[in-house]
Amino acid sequence: MSGARLEVRDLSKSFRGLKAVRNASFEVPAGEIVGLIGPNGAGKTTIFNLIAGVMAADSGTVTLDGHSLAGLRPDQVCRAGVGRTFQIVKPFAGLSVQRNVVIAALNLAPDIDAAERRAVEILDRLGLKPKRHQLAGALTLPERKRLEVARALATGPRLLLLDEVMAGLRPTEVDVMVGVFKELNASLGITILLIEHVMRAVMALSRHIVVLHHGEIIADGTPEAVTRHPKVLESYLGEEALG
């Protein structure tokens, strides 16, 4: 398994006249980790939903290794190699933690036994193995976030879309997650696009950061360059702060 290259070109989406995303273009090279940041309501999750096939774009294209994802349903996008997590976690609360991940592993696994082996391995990687026989509904929020990641990983993605998986975690837990993603990226070469507000995680993980504001990309570059970009400072801190 290796990472896939994601390319987003001139992507636009409006909701009843409100332009949620305008002409957004960026790319995530194969095997890279890219952070997508921006204030609340900037359109980050909308971009994820457009990539994942939850909704159709008004215009623009999304391609994975050169293949268009246009018109595909979410399950087809998943089978094309895109795994995603949800900002508002969606565990299968009435099923065991292990079964949650087994279901995801069935995306590629030839049979239940193979899916179970894969699930246990991934749960171990995310430190959820001791809890695997509990109901997913009984997990704490940080554990649910990790379960989201475990499920997305179990589908065998070449591109992983992470939507605020660090939110609500303690700093030490953030460090653990950062370690997990670095390791995944290094060992499997999975490409990662992450939406994140926890700057500690974004700075530690991303080789490249895309900044979105009011649906438009206002900066795109290395973490150092982006955090010094005047437009970024303005959108995050307000004009007055800049003096």
């Binding site: 994942a52 939850v54 979410p74 998943c78 565990p91 099923l95 995306n107 499920r151």
Partner: peptide, 22 residues
């Protein structure tokens, strides 16, 4: 396989779809 898909849909259809289930 089918039973697992059903349970996933019963629990959360959107999540099920995101995991590759038709």
């Amino acid at each position: 396989r089918l039973g697992h898909r059903w349970l996933a849909i019963r629990e959360d259809q959107e999540a099920a779809q995101a995991l590759g289930i038709d």
